[in-house]
């Protein structure tokens, strides 16, 4: 046996593989920078206009938060398609709270939105983790149902900026030291989620469950509880997004956030989160969201009508999963040939 040399080879390779996995986020970031350079060369106002830097950071903030929640659920080998509807309900709740309870503290509203979202996410989690129904179908169902509740609740009316407190709206578009406050919230959420996934047992167990659910049970991990937490987290972040959505846009109807679930999944997948779980990071999802939103904003400046946006989203999703597949095949091939050479 040539155990020693084999192990060394594999060690070096694992290092390289690990480096590449880390560089997946870097790759998306580079794509983003490239986009920035190309767009700026066509239209410098994109970055150097009066609102350039602000818009660049403000626009993706909500999607970054949604994508973070989506990434957590995807890592556990599940999916949450209801986030757009949860966002809508939470946004409507935010508006109603301000109207029905004048003078209500903003912080309390934020808390209410987050808790409400977590509750809605928990419904998904219960159905998936305890009733053992597939997440895809459950969250498709709640996508429908939550949106229906939203329409029924709002009676197809709207909430306008005039009905909302001024300081709340100011927060939505305000800046701190020139950085949009929403972007700061998004970065804080991203940091917290990334820290948890990397440094806490619970976070690592998400990866384990997504990597092999059966093995996770054999290990004695509490899979049910973890899945509940993952869905509650995704719901809570969608709830938070709902509050921020209200603050940012001021106008809400029953369709707020509809279709955003697709963008959230797209952002996560583009950022390297595997749709069948076990790998990826919230960083990737966040940068994916940044890239996605920026591409959509850049298209008109590059002379492409903005109704091609969705097609670009589709191309990015397909490109990302095809790329992942090719890379994983190549890696598997390399592992095989290394084992092979150790035998001969």
């Amino acid at each position: 046996m040539t155990t020693l040399t084999r192990a060394k080879n594999e060690g070096a390779l694992a290092g390289a593989a690990g480096a590449f996995a880390r560089s997946r986020e870097l790759g998306v970031l580079l794509a983003f920078l490239l986009l920035l350079i190309v767009t700026v060369s066509q239209n410098p106002l994109f970055l150097f206009g009066p609102d350039g830097p602000r818009d660049l950071l403000l626009s993706p903030a909500i999607l970054v938060i949604l994508a973070t929640g989506q990434a957590i659920v995807l890592i556990t080998r599940n999916i949450d398609l209801s986030v757009g509807s949860v966002l809508g309900l939470s946004a409507w709740l935010t508006g109603r709270l301000f109207i029905d309870f004048p003078g209500i503290p903003v912080l309390l509203v934020v808390l209410a939105g987050v808790c409400f979202g977590a509750l809605l996410g928990m419904v998904n989690g219960l159905l998936v983790a305890i009733a053992k129904a597939p997440a895809l179908v459950v969250t498709l169902g709640t996508l429908y149902a939550y949106r229906g509740i939203n329409v029924a609740w709002s009676h197809s009316s709207m909430i306008n900026a005039t009905q909302l407190p001024h300081d709340f709206l100011a927060f939505g578009i305000g800046t701190v030291f020139g950085i949009p406050s929403l972007a700061i919230v998004a970065v804080v959420v991203l940091l917290a989620a990334a820290w948890y996934l990397k440094n806490k047992r619970g976070g690592r167990e998400f990866y384990a469950i997504g990597s092999d659910p059966e093995a996770a049970r054999l290990y004695g991990l509490n899979v049910t509880r973890r899945l509940l937490i993952a869905f509650a987290a995704s719901g809570a972040l969608a709830g938070l997004s709902g509050v921020l959505f209200t603050a940012r846009y001021g106008t809400i109807d029953s369709q707020a956030g509809s279709g955003l679930e697709l963008s959230a999944v797209a952002a996560a997948v583009i950022g390297g989160v595997a749709i069948f779980g076990g790998s990826g990071s919230v960083w990737g999802a966040g940068i994916g969201a940044l890239l996605l939103v920026s591409i959509n904003r850049a298209l008109p400046l590059l002379g492409i009508p903005d109704f091609w946006q969705q097609a670009v989203v589709g191309v990015l999703i397909l490109g990302a999963i095809v790329l992942d597949r090719i890379l994983s095949l190549r890696q598997a091939h390399r592992f095989t040939s290394i084992r092979e050479s150790s035998h001969d």
Binding site: A266, F307, W308, Q310, G314, I317, L318, I321, V322
Partner: peptide
């Protein structure tokens, strides 16, 4: 290519709809 159909058709859902919207605006 061997990709999961869920991921593929989420992608083509966006792509085909995007083309439809893109053609007619």
């Amino acid at each position: 290519v061997g990709l999961p159909s869920l991921a593929v058709t989420i992608g083509t859902l966006a792509l085909f709809r995007g083309i439809a919207v893109g053609i007619l605006g």
